[in-house]
Design a protein around this nucleic acid. Structure first.
Length: 491
RNA sequence: CGGGGCGUAGCGCAGUCUGGUUAGCGUACCUGGUUUGGGACCAGGUGGUCGCGUGUUCGAAUCACGCCGCCCCGACCA
């Protein structure tokens, strides 16, 4: 058991906080609700960002950057959109500070009031569609496939590191299309990009689905999502993709001339994932000893801990592993030789386990003499002694094994915690006593959905895509239903 | 934003109820030495506007009021 980490069983929330802070991913800042992402945590984000960015480029998107500030009037143009965000907007009202006449630092200059307040973007649909209006005239300007990497601000009541902070980093894709069909295809395509990223890179299985009207993005016609299960059985929305229909085109009057020479409103999509994914990554895989990071996102893949008595021994060990370090680097496997003499090996072992480094090599003089090395894998904590000869290739394979194993483990956990439930009694019992997802029939009404939420705190996470159609009765109202939906308590 | 808890060295805490020496303890950190195959040991040392502000008092970490921050539980959300 790692020092100073609360166990998952004891207090899951505290365990999460311990991992974020003691794993050196992030800290609370002195600004309410805002975090400092530390270098190790940011390195994970960079890996996520690079992988996603490549996937976006490969699907034909380009990056651009739009302003942080949004004139208040823009946000008012799409009614349901503003309704969704109004309660959590930061507003800039002034543009100058002056010295406090009472000599206590600076105060806001009351004469420097903005004529129109600026909203710090909670999302960028409005400023972007205001801009797209000037870029789109003809069908030849379409589709417009743009992504932006940015920070956004949502003034949250209650914050948690990575999962919900007032400011966070994300990407938001905003596309414009000539036809509804094409826009819907784009929405679904990007959902699949997210799902692939979650499963292949994060080693986190997800359920692809549609949101109910209640859970839909403000301003969207249809919201798609990927939902992941955390180790406490709660759901976490890991990404969303929205079909916005012509809502924003109407609000910002974005029309194009089609081939027949007629003006038409364009169709829109938007899609995003955020630094919240780091929270998902932690809660999906890690254990009571610390972080478990899948190799594809790990900032450091391999650490080599030398065990030695003299400087001479250390030097011998270094000379021995030097070619291996070169070999691994050539394979794009990051490796660190930890020759810090102020810490003993046991301390280092625990420290790298806390940080989730996938593979640890330990080599002492006994190994040196016998041509072996101790290999420890973080995901299972298994240790084995291997021949040093050819260890580079062994590690390369091992990293792939670890990536696969982490995914399989998460998937087995997820699958064994989705339960089909058919009666209301069973539903209540399951949600209270068996953490996980519930697959149940729903009558399709917002009233039932809200009632269930009120009674159990469970919400409909999604209506799975390609859902099997089957006749059934709503688990709450008993009214007829054609398919099961996923219920869960959620982050 | 509502209820509860907390804020004293980088971290974890005692002291606060019942105001009064120089504010302690563990850990971390620094120096020297011995160590090194799972979080070393000995010795010496550094580090504090007691969350911030105002007040009560001869005197405040301690009492009062206000504010800020964090954690847990609710409402809201990605």
């Amino acid at each position: 058991m790692a020092k100073d980490i609360t166990t998952r069983l004891n207090d899951y929330s505290q365990w999460y906080n311990d991992l974020v802070i003691k794993g050196n991913l992030a800290d609370h800042s002195s600004v309410r609700g805002c975090m400092v992402i530390k270098p190790y945590g940011y390195a994970i984000w960079e890996k996520m960002r690079d992988a996603l960015d490549k996937m976006f480029k490969d699907t034909g998107h380009v990056n651009a950057y739009f302003p942080l500030f949004i004139p208040k009037s823009f946000l008012s143009k799409e009614a349901s959109h503003i309704e969704g965000f109004a309660k959590e907007c930061a507003v800039v009202t002034h543009y100058r500070l002056i010295n406090d006449p009472n000599g206590k630092g600076v105060i806001v200059d009351p004469t420097a009031k903005l004529e129109e307040e600026l909203i710090i973007r909670p999302t960028s649909e409005t400023i972007i569609w205001n801009t797209y209006k000037t870029w789109i005239q003809s069908y030849r300007d379409l589709p417009l496939l743009i992504n932006q990497w940015a920070n956004v601000v949502r003034w949250e009541m209650r914050t948690r590191l990575f999962l919900r902070t007032a400011e966070f980093l994300w990407q938001e894709g905003h596309t414009a299309h000539a036809t509804e069909k094409e826009a819907v295809e784009e929405t679904e395509k990007m959902l699949h990009v997210y799902a692939e990223f979650a499963e292949k890179w994060m080693a986190m299985p997800v359920i692809l689905g549609r949101k109910t009207a209640n859970e839909r993005f403000a301003g969207a016609v249809e919201t798609y999502c990927i939902e992941a299960m955390m180790q406490d059985g709660q759901a976490l929305q890991a990404g969303t993709s929205h079909f916005l229909g012509q809502n924003f085109a109407k609000a910002f009057d974005v029309q194009f001339l089609n081939k027949e020479g007629k003006q038409e409103l364009v169709y829109a999509t938007s899609w995003g994932v955020s630094t919240r994914l780091i929270g998902a990554l932690i809660m999906a895989h890690s254990d009571d000893d610390g972080l478990i990071i899948p190799p594809k996102l790990a900032p450091l893949h391999v650490v080599i801990v030398p065990i030695y008595k003299t400087a001479d021994d250390l030097n011998k060990l270094y000379e021995k592993v030097k070619p291996l370090i070169e070999q691994l680097k050539a394979k794009n496997i990051s490796v660190k030789f930890d020759d810090d003499e102020t810490k003993r090996p046991g301390f280092k072992f625990a420290e790298y386990e806390l940080r989730g480094v996938p593979v640890r090599l330990a080599m002492g003089m006994r190994d040196y003499e016998s041509g072996t090395v101790e290999v420890a894998r973080r995901d299972t904590k298994e240790k084995s002694v291997q021949q040093f000869e050819g260890i580079g290739n062994y590690i390369e394979t091992l990293l792939d094994d670890i990536q696969t194993n982490i995914y399989n483990k998460a998937k087995a956990f997820r699958d064994s915690n989705i339960r089909e439930v058919n009666t209301w009694e069973e539903f209540q019992d399951t949600i209270e006593n068996k953490p996980g997802f519930i697959s149940a029939h729903w009558d399709g009404t917002a009233e039932t959905e809200e009632k269930i939420k009120e009674l159990t705190k469970a919400t409909i996470r999604c209506i799975p895509l390609n859902n099997q159609q089957q006749e059934g009765k709503c688990v709450y109202s008993g009214k007829p239903s054609k398919e099961r939906v996923i219920f869960a308590r959620a982050y």
